[in-house]
Amino acid sequence: MRVSAKTAVALALALGLAACGAPKDDAAADSGSAAAATPAETPAASATTADAGGKPAAFAQCAACHSTEKGKMGVGPSLAGVYGTKSGEIAGYAFSDAMKNANLTWDDATLDKYLTAPMKVVPGTKMTFAGLSDPAARKAVIEYLKTLK
């Protein structure tokens, strides 16, 4: 079966967005299968454990849509140098009006609140990620973001 380039791109984008926090499937969660666990359901220790490059495990959800290379945009903007900037300020990305007008500064407190529930903090954001409920995972991601220059 041949798939058109447009179909392949649409499928890749759909899969990437699904990784950004699709709602938990209760039937799969109730099955008791370890394979049914989502990253948000993993224990805090594994969500905060960093790889050899210092990237916390919880950041895998972010990496589905965001690059850590300056100027390299994905579905979302590059996160290189984002710490300390204003919302909607990263050059080269088409932010939603909601994000451009949110007037947030990406510091520890703001990132913690935003990463808990992005769509509640900035209604109308393009970021459809449901959020990181684990405070230790959020802290690990924020500490990692501080290292990205």
Score class of each variant (00 low, 15 high):
66 H>R: 02
36 A>E: 01
12 A>T: 10
126 K>L: 15
115 L>G: 04
70 K>G: 13
58 A>L: 02
56 P>F: 00
28 A>C: 09
61 Q>R: 12
126 K>A: 14
112 D>I: 10
57 A>L: 08
26 D>Y: 00
144 Y>P: 13
121 V>I: 12
97 D>M: 07
84 G>P: 04
92 G>F: 02
84 G>Y: 02
126 K>G: 14
77 P>D: 11
83 Y>W: 04
47 A>N: 10
148 L>Y: 00
113 K>H: 08
16 G>D: 08
101 N>D: 15
101 N>P: 11
132 L>I: 15
95 F>Q: 05
57 A>K: 04
22 A>E: 12
80 A>M: 06
110 T>W: 01
118 P>S: 07
87 S>E: 03
6 K>E: 15
13 L>M: 11
127 M>Y: 01
106 W>Q: 07
20 C>P: 04
19 A>H: 05
4 S>D: 09
104 L>C: 03
116 T>W: 09
37 A>Q: 05
112 D>S: 09
96 S>H: 03
51 D>W: 01
18 A>E: 10
125 T>L: 09
11 L>C: 10
127 M>E: 12
72 K>N: 13
2 R>Q: 15
100 K>Y: 03
77 P>V: 10
83 Y>P: 09
58 A>W: 02
70 K>Q: 15
115 L>E: 05
39 P>D: 05
98 A>F: 02
16 G>C: 10
9 V>C: 11
93 Y>E: 09
141 V>M: 07
124 G>H: 04
127 M>A: 06
108 D>N: 06
59 F>K: 00
62 C>F: 01
94 A>H: 00
123 P>N: 03
126 K>T: 14
21 G>Y: 02
62 C>I: 11
76 G>L: 08
55 K>N: 13
